[in-house]
Design a protein around this nucleic acid. Structure first.
Lengths: 340, 340
DNA sequence: CTGTTAGCGCCTTCAT
DNA sequence: ATGAAGGCGCTAACAG
């Protein structure tokens, strides 16, 4: 069974392709008789509209590109789910690209998505470099909307959906202070990324507001992994002036830290409290569940999609840029559950 | 900065678009002088090849569609990662669709992907119905390769990549038997899906081979969720002839069961053993880590992608169908860790 | 209400 | 080595 086109239908019915097209598109200027006939024939011939031809004609592909560091993390997968849930009903397809935190791949992905004529690009950046900044500017010049989520760059004309990372760092730290912790350490990430810098600032501000001293050696910059959490905890616990709590910018690192702390015979939460970040599923499932900051990735994805739709609809006046900031929510669990 | 086409370049250089096209595509019949000139000008004018036009011309979009029940599950996200990792270097884009286990959406997704002229569809089915069976047959007739992963349908011409679910059920049950369990219960899923049926069969066969009685009321069909695991465990523990182990077809259900079992004061693994399914990240992270069956989703995704590439390259003789069956691997952890 | 024509951007045969 | 022309499938302007 071959693919059929409107020309095949036209030939079959001895009418013009234009008429077929009109009939299929519910154009008003068509007799209901021919419309009925065309629709029936189309169905019989198993006709499917060729979206590629339509995309070429209209300049609109109905595809959006989504670029994430990796898809197999609960956070990004949930964001993508949010995007897809929101965009699918509007007839958009979601094309997935991964960067693996590699900026070369990021640039490459942006270019190939652009060549594929996507109607917009939604992404979380891996790095902040001059080179990709320039690429984004080019795209924006060509009227391709760009929406950042979570990890953004500040580029004129690009929209973003993020959480308030400063507040997140602040409430997590404040929570530990409220629980009576006095010497709170912090696991940070790559501070060239705003998110980690802002969480760090929030942490610092909470200490300041509560008359706790900021201690440089309490801040450890690590990647988000269980192993690095273990190592960082070892470092902290070997300090002369040992901390009594950790606010970690990563749930995985907080898990590693908890393992190490318990291994050294220190009781959680009695003698040591931990708050993670990201609300990964396992934090809830643990016997000793882990307190963490929820970033509502599903909402973030949906919001990013909504912003994209807005941009697209206001096509005439595309210069609007929108910055949505979501509010983080602390999930209080066992790892910090004690009376002051 | 407007988008530029080969015509713009041609006009700029007072040559024909055909020459520009040839120069850009490294066609042999072109003087190196014009080639150089064209390439430079293209770069200067910020030319990007329009893949949509190419797709229309060639009938090949370089997109594949991937349909999963939902993307925000570690299993499917890992599969997608595998697919993307494998297909990206070959110049393919991955379009994601979710069915939310709804067969209407499944059919709709298949149709829209087909209209979008994808070069192939890789999917895990949500349901086995006559209707989608027919759609698959139509697609195959139109030379669009279909590759099932994990949850397949047996359709002539469609390839599949699965794990040996029978063996998985068998080794999980056998492992419990080896640990001295005598009364092994089983959480199953929707048995209209082959995967659950086969795991069940493996479970049953292992009992048979080891002279253990199959007890109907030990088999509970539930969805993959913590809550349903809790409820099912309650049911089992209230039986007169209480089981001493569970092989669960879902990690989430096994987690719920473990919570309930411990709550009732029964010791794991001493008095009760549990094996889950899927090797979800949390199973490893728990203080009482959960034994489970690994399905190597990353490998599954990569393999599905490879099968697709094979199909596509043998375009002349497309009728090849390939059935890849991966071997499941038992991850022995705390929840079944005891001497016999 | 319907047909004709042209063009979206690209590649490819045919001709030169 | 280069140019001219046609077509992938569709829609929209123009004509009737």
């Amino acid at each position: 069974m071959e693919k059929s086109t409107i020309y095949d239908i036209a030939k079959e019915l001895n009418i013009s392709a234009a008429t077929v097209s009109r009939a299929l598109n519910n154009n008003l200027k068509i007799s209901s008789a021919t419309r009925k006939l065309v629709i029936e024939t189309a169905s019989r011939m198993n006709y499917k509209q060729n979206k590629v031809a339509l995309a070429l004609k209209s300049g609109k592909s109905n595809n959006v590109g989504v670029i994430v560091p990796r898809i197999d993390s609960n956070f990004f997968a949930s964001i993508i789910r949010g995007i897809e849930d929101e965009l699918h009903p509007q007839g958009y397809h979601v094309i997935i690209c991964q960067t693996h935190e590699n900026e070369k791949r990021e640039i490459e992905n942006i270019n190939t998505l652009f060549n594929a004529q996507v109607d917009g690009i939604l992404l979380s950046i891996s790095n902040t470099t001059k080179e990709n900044e320039n690429i984004f500017k080019k795209l924006l010049n060509k009227n391709t909307p760009i929406i950042f989520f979570d990890r953004k760059m500040n580029i004129e004309g690009a929209s973003s959906v993020t959480i308030n990372d400063f507040e997140a760092g602040y409430i997590a730290t404040k929570h530990l202070i409220d629980k009576g912790c006095k010497k709170i350490a912090h696991f940070s990430g790559d501070q060239s990324l705003e998110i980690f810098e802002n969480r760090f600032k929030g942490y610092k501000q909470a200490l300041l507001d509560n008359n706790l001293k900021f201690i440089e050696e309490y801040v450890i910059r690590i990647k988000s992994s269980v192993d690095q959490g273990i190592n960082a905890a070892k470092t902290l616990l070997s300090l002369e002036n040992r901390p009594d709590a950790i606010f970690s910018s990563s749930d995985f690192a907080s898990l590693g830290a908890i393992q190490e702390i318990k291994k050294q015979g220190i009781k959680i939460p009695e003698d040591f409290c931990v708050v993670g970040f990201g609300n990964e599923p396992f934090t809830k499932f643990m016997e000793l569940s882990i307190s963490t900051v929820d970033q509502s990735p599903l909402e973030m994805g949906k919001m990013a999609a909504k912003v994209f739709l807005e941009q697209t609809r206001n096509n005439d006046n595309l210069k609007i840029e929108k910055k949505v900031v979501l509010t983080p929510e602390l999930q209080e669990r066992d790892s910090s559950d004690r009376k002051k």
